[in-house]
Amino acid sequence: MIDVFFQYDFLRYSFYTSLMIGILAPLVGVFIVVRRLALLADTLSHITLTGIAFSMMMARYYPAFAAINPVYTGMGFAVAGSLMIEQLRKSYAYYKELAIPVILSAGIGIGVVFISLADGFTTDLFNYLFGSVAAVSRNDFTAVAVLTAVVSLLLLLFYKELFFLSFDEEQAVLSGIPARALHLMFIVITAVVIGISMQIVGILLVSALMTLPVAAAMRIAASFKQLFLFAVLFGELSVIAGMTAAFYADAAPGGMIVVINLLILGAVLSADRFLKRKEKPVWTSS
């Protein structure tokens, strides 16, 4: 069934890309979930839409712009948006969560204006919103591969610092870990991963691929390391099955990938109820 992806170039590169986002999105997703930043991922994906809409609008009025892949404009907007969120969180120190709805609505509002000024809703735009099985060209794929390598390397290098910050920020800072710089790096990584992933799963569902596999993995992982292992396993399973299903059903892959993730989550939750019943938390005093 999967072999169809290797018969056509345009499918092959999409398939390789989906294999990579099946790893990347859950890896970043683990930190997003444990740091309670799930809504941040959603917000950043909406700003990515603004960037893409901007790019499409510019391409209409200035044809030279068409040479730039809208995905990169989207990533640029997401990075800028993440910095604005940080700024807003400082301005509203006591209502930090306010930054999220402000940027979220700004992203959609401005995005819709750009879309109207461009051609309105086109097939391209539909693909960006819900994903496509054939969105990735050979050149794009090279960029995806490089970005995947860089992001994976950074996550591996700063694994222990990000882990410490997620668990106990105060103590992490006291032990000399540069919290601000790492937080900034992490947000930029998130923006990049959203940009890569949205080509396959679409803007509206990109945060699903970051959170759903992690949600399932959380129920069975015994350690933080296992959390990554299971999250990536579920992520890969969902993209492979989702892409295949999307191709044969001629459906948007984003939707299919989310459906597979929901099935995994449902299976894990019901299995968990049977297995965990025996094992109760130990409440003996030391």
Partner: peptide
Amino acid sequence: SGFPATVFEVVSMGLYG
């Protein structure tokens, strides 16, 4: 308290600095 980290992993943090 739902943080999926083991006792070993938590103590390891003390060495990270």
